[in-house]
């Protein structure tokens, strides 16, 4: 098991390398000359050249990339042009906010999707199944940001159960988390259902029944544990998506998360911040996938031992 985890983490290195290379290239080849922005319009060629040399911009691409990587590894993502603060500090402020909403949304996803998917599968082709499945169809069809606005309208504006926007208390987190949770629950419930239907046909489910086990043990232990294996893979991908994809929600609910930071920085052309947050976001997606792989191995012994 430990060997498996180590292998997964080692395999992460080339992925991260390629990812940083792509991010770095985007900004290296992006139009606009950083030197003339620093130096201003009226600059002598000598001063221009010395600034270029000072920031290492006269070096070839690969050297510049390696220097960039060195500082990234040291935890230095550069300094924000707009706020003149280290980028890493700004990200440290914003990332936990996004993670809070994302993980709460993730929890809601699980709490809704698993029971709904299992019940729909067990009660296949009954009214309960049709109800669950049409609900999830609706859920997959509604965009997250629109669902967020609907929730805001009814539960914050009309019913006044929750604050409309902002960040600070747990009550601020509920609506955006539900917007994420419900959308993801819809797609996950469908996956749980089809996976359960497949598993319920298996011989070992019949064996479990032939042992005289309680029906709930047959369903929730013997069948569900097998049915979750493909769901975990999907959830790993979704976890990354949740963290990286809550940009629209953060804007609607005025939440100071990393998605919002990135959008604001793009609009302000604060490239070091954009670059830094891109690296942090993509890394967290990669990390989420590794977590899914590890979880996968915990559930399925056939992967653990091969």
């Amino acid at each position: 098991m430990l060997k498996y985890i180590v292998k997964r983490i080692v395999l992460m290195i080339p992925v991260v390398t390629v990812m940083t290379l792509i991010v770095f290239s985007i900004f290296y080849f992006a139009p606009g000359d950083p030197v003339s922005r620093i130096a201003g319009p009226n600059v002598t060629p000598e001063v221009y050249e010395s600034i270029r040399r000072k920031y290492g911009l006269d070096q070839p691409f690969i050297i510049q990339y390696l220097r960039f990587m060195k500082s990234v590894i040291e935890g230095d993502l550069g300094v924000s042009i707009l706020q003149e603060r280290p980028v890493i500090e700004m990200i440290k402020e914003r990332l936990p906010v996004t993670l809070e909403i994302g993980l709460l949304g993730f929890l809601i996803t699980f709490l809704i999707a698993i029971p709904a998917g299992v019940i729909a599968a067990v009660k296949k082709n009954t009214m309960v199944d049709y109800l669950c499945m049409s609900g999830t169809l609706l859920g997959t069809a509604i965009p997250t940001f629109w669902l967020g606005m609907l929730l805001m309208y009814f539960f914050a504006y009309k019913l006044r159960w929750f604050p409309i926007s902002g960040y600070g208390t747990i009550r601020h987190l509920i609506l955006p988390s539900f917007a994420i949770g419900l959308t993801n629950a819809a797609i996950t419930a469908r996956m749980v259902r089809s996976s359960m239907l497949e598993v319920l046909k298996q011989d070992y489910v019949r064996t479990a029944r032939s042992k005289g086990l309680l029906e709930k043990v047959v369903i929730y232990r013997h069948a569900l544990k097998n049915a979750l294996i493909p769901v975990i893979t999907l959830m790993g991908l979704r976890l990354g998506w949740i963290i990286g994809g809550s940009v629209a929600l953060e804007i609607i609910f005025s939440i100071p998360g990393i998605g919002r930071l990135m959008v604001d920085s793009i609009l302000a052309r604060d490239y070091p911040v954009v670059q830094g947050s891109m690296i942090v976001l993509t890394s967290s997606i990669i990390l989420a996938n590794i977590l899914a792989d590890i979880l996968y191995a915990i559930v399925d012994p056939r992967i653990r031992y091969s």
């Binding site: 011989d203 070992y204 064996t207 032939s210 042992k211 399925d300 056939r302």
Partner: peptide, 16 residues
């Protein structure tokens, strides 16, 4: 009453 099935390869639950 208990039962043994034809397919030993698929009759046991792979995750327990």
């Amino acid at each position: 009453i208990s039962m043994i099935f034809q397919e030993p390869m698929t009759s046991l639950n792979p995750v327990f």
